[in-house]
Amino acid sequence: MPYASPLERVWYWVFRVLCGAVLLFLIAPILVVMPLSFNAEPYFSYPMPGLSLQWYQDLVNNPQWQLGIRNSLIVGAFATTLATTLGTLAALGLSQRKFPMRTLVMSVLISPMIVPVVITAVGMYFFYSDIGLTNTLPGLILAHTALATPFVVITVTATLTAFDHSMTRAAANLGASPWTAFRRVQLPLILPGVISGALFAFVTSFDEVVVVLFIAGPEQRTLPRQMFAGIREQISPTILAAACILVVISIALLTTIELLRRRSERLRGISPA
């Protein structure tokens, strides 16, 4: 900045400090709280008197937390599979050039993300109890699938807008059946988007607590539900241990998505856009 006026220079540094403070605000709460899950004493302040893994032990050994983790994994796995399959098929259909009432259909498919989750939860509580789906794992899986599909539809649609449809036409010209063209040409190219969508779907289900509060009983208690119960009464370090594990999972998923995004950009670089 050789030609900048002094005022501009001051502003430049003020701006940087400001941005640094905002980024710190974003990341600090998560980073500051995580080490406390290794505290030897059940207090939440620094300096810590000693380190210990006892809260993690509690997490693994306590039957209630075990049940929560197991339920969350089961519901998450089924909801992710269902949401990814249904969402990818729908995104493929919606990407067709002449789709009747595309905006309307898309708005309906995205609405579970927009409608306040309490309204969804109360509605499901009324409707699912009428048909006997409350207090069951299948009911919870259906609910979480509905909440997770918008994320799959959005990510796969975004990938498909960058997809060059002449590729599948070329495959068809070379004699591939529609199914082969999809499996061998289109799917590998949109796979990064599909996987990101699946990860989003999993995180949505794995974090969800409001619908669980309304339509699940004690037997369907999930990990977030167990955490929520604890925060309401008295925060225990075990909750922080659970939170810490969730953060590590988020980091792993974020890394995966970032790698997939780069791969997808590289692949797109090859295709004539």
Partner: peptide
Amino acid sequence: WTSLLVRTTAW
């Protein structure tokens, strides 16, 4: 990407 519940707990 971090759970809403985790961030609320942190606060």
